[in-house]
Write a protein that binds this DNA or RNA. Structure first.
Length: 921
RNA sequence: GGGUGCUUAGCUCAGCUGGAAGAGCGUCGCCUUUACACGGCGAAGGUCGGGGGUUCGAUCCCCUCAGCACCCA
């Protein structure tokens, strides 16, 4: 084995071997355990969030697979309607052409080309990350089978009356020229204006003042509303005002929606361009006047001089015209929430259009109950509240999009505009009782991408057919997802799953935090702070990193700042840390926090951990039992201790997996590996293996324990660090090489299989405290590790003597001391630095080694600490309420601790006195 | 405006049902000890955001204030 672990050399080879062994496929035996991957955009690349999420899912899957479950991790990708269409359109624009020029059929073919062209980037990245998905079942939301499921769901919902078509006010994106659902709207605070407009009363007896942030919509006003209880305007209700510029008369109405405290207390009502006004209009039977085209230009409903103007031009013109007529009362600066499209980022307009909707309430109710009654459990639980709040106020879902890339809506129209829905045109015809002579044209629109995503847990398993997959792997066990798509995706999967399969789509939802950069910023291309996870795996030099971060920026002026920040944060670029180091880092981030700050120093730490493990393995292999070396084995204290510690560690690991706390899993294994196995156990074996007088049985005990513990540890670590564990395991497992065995199928270790050994833990604790005491003296006195120290023991009890006898060699080696001499009763102790171990005093004679003044300082410091503790405990013990109310074991523990501290202080004082005497003499 | 989460060592974060404050990184010493300098050994560093309450006892429970983040309107 190489002296340093080099991941690049082994990772690809190991992954290829797993694939050739078909190790990712469900075993077909044991209870099922399944997870569907949240499908990433088929033409995208994996970002840090994906890599984190994939690591979590892979760890869960590998863990269950090793536990003997029939595991399926279902992979796949999403067609990502708007996002993908935008990318391809941008490419076409760069080539001087466009979507419309190509026509629908050619355009869609181009998108498929692009999908094929970029489609394997994601699978390549996932392979590099070690994802053990079953590639043979890779699915895409627009595969024929999945499209079939989409159509089936649409038709069934329609025939049940749960999908309807109608002219409704929807969020309209004038750039993409499509409707959006409520969820795709991001409202952002923006500094704008509030225009106060005068609307003259029709009888010429004065005017009302209305305030608006969108004056251009006034052309579509159909009323002015006041609050019914507003005394100021009570007399005006029912009268009419003349709408300026449009020269129409509109009524003054009363509606409780109006906030009397806002502006003048009068509100213009524009049902065709505002959601609240739409409802007011419904209540009062008002007409809807649409003054905006799909491009957000003014329609023919507007007075001639505004027709065809862009919305913002029109705004300026209208304000100017009102001012000229003396109808602009005032303008004030005003911050308002402006709705923008989450993709185009343009300002959206509420627009009356014909769209398809899902009637959601009948689907939402069962979905709410499934979480209420625990058939679905959110982890952490708090997210269930977020889910309930949204679900209980849910609005009908606008599912039609005026795009070309996606699932075409299975609806046809005859020449009169009547609609026929069916699985295909023939089905639609027969459902509508139409003969072949009637000409039909299919609806031009496609479905919201999330409509197909909502079916993912069962559409990937062959639904609507009653497949074996549906019966075995559905419902899935857990959905692993970020909180940002609880509404978009999780809620809709629950609704659709219950509706069409009668079962929940998953039993648990593990909601993790979102990966942010070191400063807590969201990682985004525009901020220039993204990191390609594979750049951490394989490394990247500074220039390449800067080039990646500054290429294709929407705001090229950001380039210098991004370059500067990148140079500052990664002056040397990023070294190759390997997949396992990255995965361990992700695991350690999997706390319950919402924001997960990614810190490269952590990856470096785990890279070092991998190297530590690698080198421990080198040591173990160098000391392996030879095949012929059968026979008696004898376990020493350290051997028994490390086995017992392994059991305790595995218990922590099990608790971690149970609670989706991979951070706890990672730290339990990290601490065991480094601070127990390497720091103490491996070191202690050297005293046995390198001692000429140790028995063969003792040596065998140490060798066997070294290997057993390492082998078990590797299995325990495998779900988090699959590559290095496989590589080492192949060398230590003691089976013939070249077999098809893989650690992936080895049983996951269980705490219950290994006996705890409290006796060995107690004795080893004594040994460790002894060693630490001496080391502290050495460290604080700056004595070189190579300098062997003489040690004298004072006040040794029978237990101490027994421990000392059994562990003398270990103590000598680990503490770097000569054989300790036990002071006989009454024998004078040398002047020495002291370490305390219960009543035992471990003395290191000063004799030229130790500066008495430094030792005096050290004793003083320790005494001060002990006294501070003692005072607190005494005060507590003196409180009668404490004795009365606290549990007896706590009272007893405190009392014992008081005795300990008193003894310790006494010892420290005696030592200090001797050192002082020495200094004085 | 309504809601949720966060505030613990210089930095990034753990801390289970309330019972002697932890890790990693960084810092400071000593050290080429034959698994590992991607290392070993030792050390320093915290009035657990402020205030109040409950309790024998609060980082943990309750109230309140402040700051930060996010969601909804």
């Amino acid at each position: 084995m190489d002296k340093a672990y080099s991941p690049a050399a082994i990772e690809s080879r190991i992954y290829a071997r797993w694939e050739s062994l078909e190790a990712f496929k469900p075993s077909g035996v044991g209870p099922a355990y399944s997870i569907v991957i949240p499908p990433p955009n088929v033409t995208g690349t994996l970002h840090m969030g994906h890599a984190f999420q994939d690591t979590v899912m892979d760890a869960l899957i590998r863990h269950r697979r090793m536990e003997g479950f029939d595991t399926l991790w279902q992979p796949g990708t999403d067609h990502a309607g708007i996002a993908t269409q935008m990318v391809v359109e941008r490419q076409l624009n760069a080539q001087g052409t466009g979507r419309v020029e190509l026509g629908r059929e050619t355009f869609v073919e181009r998108v498929w080309d692009w999908k094929r062209h970029s489609g394997d980037t994601i699978s390549r990245q996932m392979r590099r990350l070690g994802a053990s998905v079953d590639w043979s079942r890779d699915r895409f939301t627009m595969d024929p089978a999945l499209s079939h499921a989409v159509t089936e769901v649409f038709v069934r919902l329609y025939r049940e009356g749960l999908i309807y078509r109608g002219k409704r006010l929807v969020n309209w994106d004038p750039v993409l020229k499509t409707a959006l659902s409520d969820l795709e709207v991001v409202a952002e605070p923006e500094q704008g204006h509030l225009w106060h407009l005068r609307y003259p009363l029709a009888d010429g007896s004065g005017h009302l003042v209305v305030a608006t942030t969108r004056p251009e919509t006034m052309l579509g006003d159909v009323a002015v509303a006041v609050h019914p209880d507003d005394e100021r305007y009570r007399a005006l209700v029912g009268r009419r005002v003349r709408l300026p510029l449009a020269d129409r008369e509109i009524p003054v109405i009363a509606d409780a929606y109006v906030d009397p405290a806002f502006g003048s207390g009068c509100v213009k009502i524009t049902p065709a361009h505002d959601f609240n006004d739409y409802e007011v209009g419904e209540r009062h039977g008002l007409p809807r006047i649409n003054v905006l085209t799909p491009e957000a230009k003014l329609t023919d409903e507007a007075p001639a001089r505004y027709r065809g103007l862009d919305r913002f031009e029109a705004r300026a013109r209208i304000v100017a015209d009102l001012e000229a007529e003396g109808l602009l009362e005032r303008v004030e600066a005003h911050q308002s929430m402006v709705p923008r499209g989450d993709r185009s980022h343009t300002i959206l307009e509420p627009l009356l259009t014909d769209q398809w909707f899902v009637r959601i309430a009948p689907l939402a109710d069962p979905a709410i109950r499934a979480v209420e009654d625990g058939r679905i459990r959110f982890v952490p639980e708090g997210w269930a509240g977020v889910y309930f709040d949204w679900m209980r106020n849910i609005k009908d879902w606008c599912i039609s999009r005026q795009l070309w890339w996606g699932h075409r809506i299975p609806a046809w129209y005859d020449e009169t505009g009547r609609v026929y829905v069916g699985r295909d045109e023939r089905d639609a015809r027969s459902a509508g009782g139409l003969g072949s002579e009637v000409r039909l044209r299919q609806d031009e629109d496609v479905l919201d991408t999330w409509f197909s995503s909502a079916l993912w847990p069962f559409s990937t398993q062959g639904w609507p057919d009653a497949t074996r997959e549906m019966s075995v792997y559905y419902p899935t066990n857990v959905l692993v997802t970020g909180f940002d798509i609880i509404f978009f995706w999780v809620a809709r999967m629950i609704m659709m799953g219950l509706k069409f399969t009668g079962e929940v789509p998953f039993r648990e939802v593990y909601v993790h935090g979102l990966i942010r950069d070191h400063d807590g910023q969201k990682m985004s291309k525009s901020k220039g702070n993204v990191i390609d996870p594979l750049d951490i795996v394989d490394g990247v030099d500074l220039d390449a990193l800067i080039a990646k971060r500054t290429a294709g920026l929407m705001q090229p002026q950001m380039k210098p700042a991004i370059e500067r920040a990148t140079r500052k944060q990664f002056p040397q670029g990023i070294p190759a840390f390997g997949t396992d180091a990255l995965r361990l880092s992700f695991a350690s981030l999997a706390t319950q926090s919402r924001d997960l700050r990614f810190d490269m120093a952590r990856v470096e730490g785990y890279r070092n951990f991998c190297n530590k493990l690698w080198n421990a393995a080198r040591y173990v292999l160098a000391n392996e039992e030879s095949a012929a070396d059968g026979g008696e084995i004898e376990l020493g204290i350290a051997d028994r201790w490390i086995r017992s510690r392994l059991a305790a560690t595995l218990a922590r690991v099990e608790a971690g997996f149970d609670g989706y706390r991979l951070d706890a899993v990672a730290s339990a294994l990290y601490e065991f590996t480094w601070h127990e196995y390497c720091d103490w156990y491996v070191e202690s074996t050297k005293t046995v293996l390198q001692a000429p007088d140790a028995s063969a049985a003792q040596k065998r005990g140490a060798r066997r324990t070294l290997v057993d513990t390492l082998e078990t540890l590797l299995r325990a670590l495998h779900p988090l660090a699959p590559f290095i564990t496989e590589e080492i395991w192949q060398r230590v497992r003691g089976e013939p090489a070249g077999s098809s065995a893989t650690i992936m199928r080895a049983p996951y270790p269980r705490a219950a299989e290994i006996a705890a050994d409290p006796e060995a833990e107690r004795e080893m604790h004594w040994v460790m405290q002894f060693v630490l005491g001496v080391r502290q003296i050495r460290g604080e006195m700056d004595i070189a590790p190579s300098r062997r120290l003489p040690v004298v023991l004072q006040n040794a009890g029978p237990g101490d003597v027994a421990y000392l006898d059994r562990n003398a060699k270990t103590l000598q080696r680990l503490a770097g001391i000569d054989a300790p001499r036990v002071l006989a009763a009454g024998e004078a102790a040398p002047v020495a630095a002291v370490a305390l171990l219960g009543s035992l005093e471990i003395l290191v004679p000063m004799a030229g080694l130790i500066d008495p003044a430094a030792e005096r300082e050290r004793l003083e410091k320790r005494r001060r600490r002990a006294e501070a503790d003692l005072q607190k405990l005494r005060a507590k013990a003196a409180n009668v309420e404490f004795a009365r109310n606290a549990p007896p074991e706590i009272v007893a523990k405190d009392a014992a601790r008081i005795v300990e501290l008193e003894t310790e202080i006494g010892q420290l004082e005696r030592q200090a006195a001797r050192v002082r005497a020495l200094l004085a003499g």
